[in-house]
Design a protein around this nucleic acid. Structure first.
Length: 225
DNA sequence: ACCCAGGTGGCCC
DNA sequence: GGGCCACATGGG
């Protein structure tokens, strides 16, 4: 299938979503460090639960690298408990913060100076950081143009017939090859897909008023969503 | 009482 | 190198 066809469909979906939802102003956080923490806490977790955990971290005044490393595992676990998987995530946060302090002195600017591909490779070595978390941190905390793929991206992409494959990097490459390599567009596109997914494109396709409904593929004569 | 949510690491074969 | 499974809370 010619690339221009994919390109046109991707831009069409983007335009439909942007016109429907407007700019999303993502990632929802006050600081880049908060983005990093949120990216770990939101793994397979409802964002409302993550917000509760972040509120706890803020009111305890430990949402800083040195403090997160300084407090005990038990205390950290209790603070982030609402976000689920709290024992796992406490370990993951510590592992990330340890890396951030050791390699970059906990300085964002120092980290931003490094090449994006190199950073991505580093992040993937850190316990608890997989491809999506790495890309979220790169894109939304460090302003590195890398496309973030999540469960919504996969689900929506399949329903609208963009692709049939399921692998993270296949899908990431698909987007990156077919849309302009533009930081703001990458940020906006992922945010719009999440907005669509949260509101309409759920596991059970019952989204009659879905803004991309007319773009969805047909199955047995009906649209997939 | 289910089902779902902005994944990842550790097994097993 | 892919296919399971544990991890855990809160909302619909």
């Amino acid at each position: 299938m010619p690339t221009s066809r994919h390109r046109n469909k991707l831009l069409k979906i983007y335009n439909v979503l942007f016109n429907h939802f407007g700019p999303r102003a993502w990632w929802p956080a006050e600081t880049p460090f908060e983005v990093m923490v949120g990216a770990i806490l939101t793994q397979n977790t409802n964002w409302l639960n993550v917000e509760k955990a972040i509120v706890n971290l803020k009111s305890s005044r430990v949402l800083r690298p040195a403090s997160l490393l300084g407090i005990g595992n038990r205390e950290l676990e209790n603070l982030i408990k609402p976000s689920g998987y709290y024992r796992q995530k406490a370990k993951k946060l510590k592992a990330f913060v340890k890396y951030f302090l050791r390699d970059y002195d906990g300085r964002l600017g120092k980290m931003r100076d490094v090449d994006g591909n190199e950073l991505r490779h580093e992040l993937l070595q850190v316990h608890g950081i997989g491809p999506e978390t790495a890309d979220s941190i790169l894109l939304y905390a460090l302003d590195k143009p890398t496309f973030v793929v999540d469960a919504y991206t996969k689900r929506i992409g399949k329903r609208v017939g963009l692709f049939k494959f399921d692998g993270y990097h296949e899908i990431k490459d698909f987007f990156e090859k077919n849309i302009p390599r533009d930081l703001e567009m990458y940020k906006e596109y992922h945010a719009l897909l999440v907005e669509l997914g949260k509101n309409y494109c759920r596991v059970k396709p019952v989204c009659l008023k879905c803004p991309v409904n007319r773009l969805c593929v047909k199955e047995k004569g009906r649209r997939a969503c």
